[in-house]
Design a protein around this nucleic acid. Structure first.
Lengths: 196, 196
DNA sequence: AATATAAGTGAGCGTTTGCTCACTTAAAAA
DNA sequence: TTTTTAAGTGAGCAAACGCTCACTTATATT
């Protein structure tokens, strides 16, 4: 039996991420991917059932990477402020160091493929985060709120900053640059709003 | 000279929005749109140069509708809290009453078409919002911060709530429902973080 | 009624799409 | 060394794609 060529399988994954991140999901195609990855179209179908399977599989892998990276050094028993700050730092670092992965993920999160991937990924998030928020509640660090409201206040601002950074877009005249100080200031604002 | 049939032109716009909102940008096509709108493919090209022109034109129109709707009854001279709250209410109302428009806009905002549309739309936003934030600064209602940071803290949480609502997704077990009370609570949190 | 002009069309163009098939190649098992 | 198995391929299919063209239709102008 012939060995699987790990270079090929990795080229497929890597180029798929690159292409979706750079040219958008709406311009992504299997034939183009095959050509870019230096592989026959048929080879892709050895590893993935179809286009949808390829995109959802890769997005789940990348999503889990991102989630795990975000939770590195985090413990649900931590104080609310410390725990949230670690996640902000981790998440920002991932976005800056894995720009293509993050952009790919963002594309899929806003597409018709989102259901399958979010189902898988949010489970990991819910478990850890559910405990964290319950602990913070018990210690009376924050007010009672649903997980969705919590997410919207605690994480949405960070995601927005990252998006501004990635798009290189600026609302004001000057170019927007993501700095540690800027993140810390924004975090301070968010924490102030959340804390009792 | 024959008259333009407003029904046709409107059907094209309407169905384009509907199709992108429901099936995603990656499944949107001109032939399909023509069939759905009850029109010849060639007719579409009377009104729009090509597919890109159609999508960007419509997205700019819808985006301006949304922006104007959000600023209804708003005045940059208002107190910070009152002004921001009006925008929250307006923006939420628009999202709930114009679900398809909002979903269409969100699809394009996360695609390769975003540049052209955001360029046009954010101008209107910047002017009004720039004044508003400068006024709040002068009155010492908030701390100095860039427009991007302001946007990320003041609006990203609301957009996140709306997204949860539209996706019908729930992180917790129960289904997430967007209520006036929920919005008010979230707003209180955000204001608390922003106010001096 | 005749003419001019722009709206609107259906058939279909060349290309690209997702995907398959008959086939070759590499390596383990016999 | 031969056989078996799965990896990997290039050519190419049917369907869909974006878009155009020769044409018909409706209305304002002459």
């Amino acid at each position: 039996m012939r060995h699987r060529d790990e270079n090929k399988i990795q080229a497929i994954r890597e180029k798929a991420i690159e292409m979706v991140a750079n040219d958008g999901l709406e311009n992504f195609g299997i034939n183009r991917l095959a050509k870019t990855a230096g592989v026959s179209p048929a080879t892709i179908y050895i590893y993935y059932k179809d286009k949808e399977d390829l995109l959802t599989s890769i997005s789940i892998e990348e999503g889990l990477k991102m989630t795990r990276s975000t939770l590195k050094g985090f413990d649900p028993e931590m104080s609310f402020e410390e725990g949230l700050w670690i996640q902000w730092k981790n998440r920002a670092a991932f976005a800056l160091n894995n720009h293509l992965s993050a952009a790919f993920f963002e594309q899929l999160r806003n597409s018709t493929y989102k259901e399958k991937m979010l189902e898988t990924i949010s489970k990991e998030f819910e478990l850890t985060m559910g405990n964290f928020i319950v602990n913070a509640l018990n210690r009376k660090e924050i007010d009672k709120m649903s997980l969705e409201v919590y997410w919207s206040i605690a994480f949405a601002p960070l995601y927005s900053l990252i998006k501004f950074h990635n798009e290189g877009r600026s609302l004001s005249g000057r170019k927007f640059v993501f700095s540690q100080k800027l993140m810390k200031d924004t975090f301070a604002c968010v924490i102030k709003g959340l804390k009792k």
